[in-house]
């Protein structure tokens, strides 16, 4: 209890059951996970083990079938869709494997997107987005559209969009999964810098053991449970 203020993510006894027809799929079972403020956690495990499912529960994109999810001391498993949407906008930065940038918007506008959900003025939005693009090293590509950027550059824009609201946690689902080794390394260095220099708490799903070495801690998801060691 004494260091409770340091525990940012507190997942306790979480089950997540999916229904496919008459079949029940128990993806997560009685799962516990604590992540401290300022950690860079790598989440590994075989395909279909439920890594994305767990990340979605922490990010408020999904609700557990059982158990509790608390972020920064606030329970989010009981919030309704509308409350969750507002909560995500305030607390979560999402980085996707396939970037999920809006093709009709240029880099600057893509990064400004989450700021439309804040009370910032248009000028402030422009300034914040420019600063975020500067952090990811794409200051001079702000008018480029996603199709004009390489995969690595698109992912940088994706990261800029995720950090522009200064979220409580950064959730990355296989952020290097679609990139070559070199671009992937650059993205990992960027995440590492965000963690070390700005103190961002990051949870990153990855298949790549090499990537997990950049994290401060790695956990393994296997058969619905979390292990501190690679079971293989």
């Amino acid at each position: 209890m004494s260091n409770n203020h340091e525990v940012l993510v507190d997942v306790q006894g979480v089950d997540r059951v999916f229904r496919r027809g008459s079949e029940e799929i128990h993806v997560l079972q009685k799962l516990d996970l604590q992540v401290r403020q300022g950690e860079f956690l790598a989440l590994m495990g075989p395909s279909g083990s439920g890594k994305s499912t767990l990340l979605n529960l922490i990010g408020g994109l999904d609700r557990p079938s059982n158990g509790s999810v608390a972020i920064g001391g606030e329970r989010i498993d009981g919030l309704n869709d509308r409350q969750l949407a507002a909560w995500r906008a305030r607390h979560i930065g999402l980085v996707f494997q396939f970037y999920n940038l809006l093709p009709v918007l240029n880099a600057q506008r893509n990064v400004e997107l989450p700021l439309l959900l804040t009370s910032l003025s248009a000028t402030q939005r422009r300034e914040h987005a420019a600063a975020a693009l500067d952090i990811v090293g794409l200051k001079d590509r702000n008018t480029s559209f996603p199709t004009q950027l390489s995969g690595g550059e698109q992912q940088r824009v994706g990261i800029a969009r995720a950090i522009v609201t200064d979220p409580t946690i950064l959730l990355c689902d296989e952020p290097t999964g679609d990139l070559d080794q070199k671009s992937g390394d650059e993205i990992l260095s960027l995440l590492q810098a965000l963690n070390r220099e700005q103190g961002k708490t990051i949870i990153m799903v990855t298949h790549d053991p090499h990537a997990s070495h950049r994290a401060s801690r790695t956990v393994y998801l296997n058969k619905g449970r979390l292990l501190a060691e690679n079971p293989e």
Binding site: L61, L94, F96
Partner: peptide
């Protein structure tokens, strides 16, 4: 659908 899901994930309402 993916674009809509992305917007919703970022916190845009239905």
């Amino acid at each position: 659908v993916r674009e809509i899901a992305t917007l919703r994930a970022l916190g845009f309402g239905a």
